[in-house]
Design a protein around this nucleic acid. Structure first.
Length: 555
DNA sequence: GCCGTTTTCGGCCCGACTGTTTTCAGTCG
């Protein structure tokens, strides 16, 4: 069992203990231990009992739980309490604003154990009558359940990619030619349906062949001989598989990769309906249009973009020379500064920018001034090791509710660069969020605006911003805008990259890595960046270290 | 449940907000 699974199991146990109302200090201690384990850089499963109790908060009882998880794959404590908990309770815990205590109350007082019943209770004004609840809580819960229901059948790009790979491998064992199409082939940040093409002349036999794959569950009512529709076992994401005759392969592939709006713009059906084509390039050549890469085919702004640029100018992963928004064990990261830097160097990057949390982010062990100094001293020492690699001194400074950053100018001046990000008080309306973020951009020490809207895909909408004004301010103040490459965020939304390019604003593809593995998240960033037309020449971390430093100086 | 002692029982991560309350519990980042 991996570290994440162990920590997840313990965190689940904490929540369930709280729902059931066991001693709060018992659960708080387990939460504390889980945090310690989460930060442990090595493999937890290879630790001995004596080594485990070295971790703060871990004692005899918790060692037993951990060993159970490692050796048996489950824990009797967790299994026991799960047995006493209706499964729907776990869904209630996902609702923002409802913690375990409130969920426990809903369960005990109203007998509600799933989202549907809770929604009904909101509609009937029964939730607001509970002690500690009110109209506002009820309204929030109602809205959030609706949000969850809308998104319940969608997956983030990273998760959908894994599921798709699994299915593709199986399809390949059954068909000569298979291809991925739909939103995933266009690198969409959120996937609402997986689309595949399989080549076959046996239209009527293909459905049975697909059904012979373990896990494929057909929705017979929605399927036809030409299109299999259904799901993969254990997932709600809709899947469609089109059975295509060999001579129609390229034509069908083009149709299924592009967004319908792109097909409308190029009048695809008028020109190519039923026609055999050799490749996607032929489509654009025939129509005397510039070639559009698959991920851009949205019917959005790709043709405006292609009047000024060519696809060869788009950023690629191999163009990246470093990464600029990362965390270490100084704040809430899992790997040390040196480990993170060495991992970047091993990947062939030229620089590693550390941007740990600032002092306001106490929950993330944000750096007070003395620890900023200590970190920078360590950086100076480490930098003496290499002549081909540099650690840059950054910080992810919190944008306070009034728009100021949470260090004095004397401290801010010590950094090579500052990533300014909002972490608290996210629920602002546009009248408050705009002046807040604009003020942060105008701060002379701000270099990069971090995850601009604070969104968490499928979990939390970002706060509202007038992005044209934000981008204008970035340009005017020599600030780069972050494309946070964590698949949980992918914020800046790719739709605004087109505008950033028009205005000549540098976009920084930042992994927001909290451990070595997170650095590769830049791949997701590059995927959506290309979708939005990000040019190599305007990618901040495709600059070499000298040019980067010049940018930071706002010279 | 764990820790750390003023060594065997009392106290437990932080700061701020929100929506409840009428001084604070619950939640979040």
């Amino acid at each position: 069992m991996g570290n994440d699974e162990i920590v997840d199991a313990l965190e689940l146990l904490v929540k369930l203990w709280d729902v059931h109302g066991v001693n709060e200090f018992k659960s708080k201690n387990l939460a504390f231990a889980a945090r310690g384990l989460d930060k442990y850089p090595g493999k937890i499963s290879s630790l001995s009992e004596t080594e485990l109790v070295q971790i703060p908060g871990v004692g005899k009882s918790i060692v037993k739980i951990i060993l159970d998880l490692i050796q048996v794959g489950s824990s009797s404590d967790l299994d026991g309490i799960l047995e006493q908990t209706p499964p729907g309770i776990l869904n209630l815990l996902k609702i923002k604003g409802l913690g375990p205590k409130k969920v426990g109350l809903i369960w005990k007082e109203l007998g509600i154990t799933d989202l549907d019943d809770l929604l009904t209770a909101c509609e009937e004004n029964r939730l607001e009558q509970l002690k500690g609840f009110g109209k506002a809580v009820q309204e929030n819960v109602q809205l959030y359940i609706q949000f969850l229901k809308q998104n319940s059948k969608k997956l983030r790009l990273d998760k959908a990619t894994h599921l798709s790979q699994l299915i593709l491998e199986q399809l390949k064992t059954k068909f000569n030619q298979v291809a991925e199409a739909g939103e995933l082939s266009r690198n969409c940040e959120v996937i609402s349906e997986l689309v595949f093409l399989v080549e076959s002349t046996d239209i009527f036999g293909s459905g049975a062949l697909i059904n012979s794959i373990d896990g494929m569950e057909e929705d017979i009512k929605e399927s036809s001989p030409f299109t299999w529709r259904g799901i993969f076992h254990g997932h709600l994401l809709a899947i469609q598989i089109h059975v295509i005759a060999p001579d129609q392969w390229e034509n069908a592939l083009f149709q299924q990769v592009a967004h319908p709006e792109h097909l409308v713009v190029i009048q695809f059906y008028k020109h190519f309906q039923g026609k055999a084509i050799a490749s996607d390039k032929e489509v654009y050549e025939t129509l005397a249009l510039p070639y559009i890469i698959p991920e851009m085919r949205e019917g959005f702004k790709e043709f405006e973009w292609s009047q000024k640029h060519q696809s060869e100018e788009l950023i690629q992963y191999s163009d990246l020379k470093g990464c600029l928004h990362n965390h270490s064990t100084y704040s809430d990261g899992k790997n040390t500064l040196l480990e993170m830097a060495e991992a970047c160097r091993a990947q062939g990057l030229q620089y590693f920018g550390i941007a740990d949390h600032s002092q306001y982010a106490a929950y993330a062990n944000g750096l007070k001034e003395d620890r900023v100094l200590a970190q920078q001293e360590e950086i100076d020492q480490l930098n003496a090791r290499w002549n081909d690699f540099t650690i840059l001194k950054g910080i992810e400074a919190d944008i306070l509710p009034d728009g100021s950053l949470d260090y004095d100018a004397s401290v801010l001046a010590r950094f090579d660069y500052v990533v300014a990000s909002v972490h608290a008080q996210l629920a602002m309306d546009i009248d408050r969020s705009m002046p807040r973020v604009l003020k942060a951009i105008e701060n002379p020490y701000t270099s990069i605006l971090g995850h601009p809207t604070g969104r968490l895909l499928l979990t939390r909408a970002g706060f509202p911003l007038q992005m044209d004004k934000i981008l204008d301010a970035c340009k005017a103040n020599g600030v780069s805008i972050e494309l946070n490459a964590s698949p949980y965020r992918l914020d800046l939304d790719w739709r605004y990259i087109y505008d950033a390019m028009d205005k000549g604003i540098y976009v920084s593809i930042n992994p927001d890595a909290h451990q070595i593995e997170g650095i590769r998240d830049m791949e997701y960033g590059v995927k959506v960046a290309r979708k939005g037309g990000l040019l190599r020449s305007l990618t901040l971390n495709a600059l070499n270290v000298q040019d980067l430093k010049t940018f930071f100086k706002k010279a």
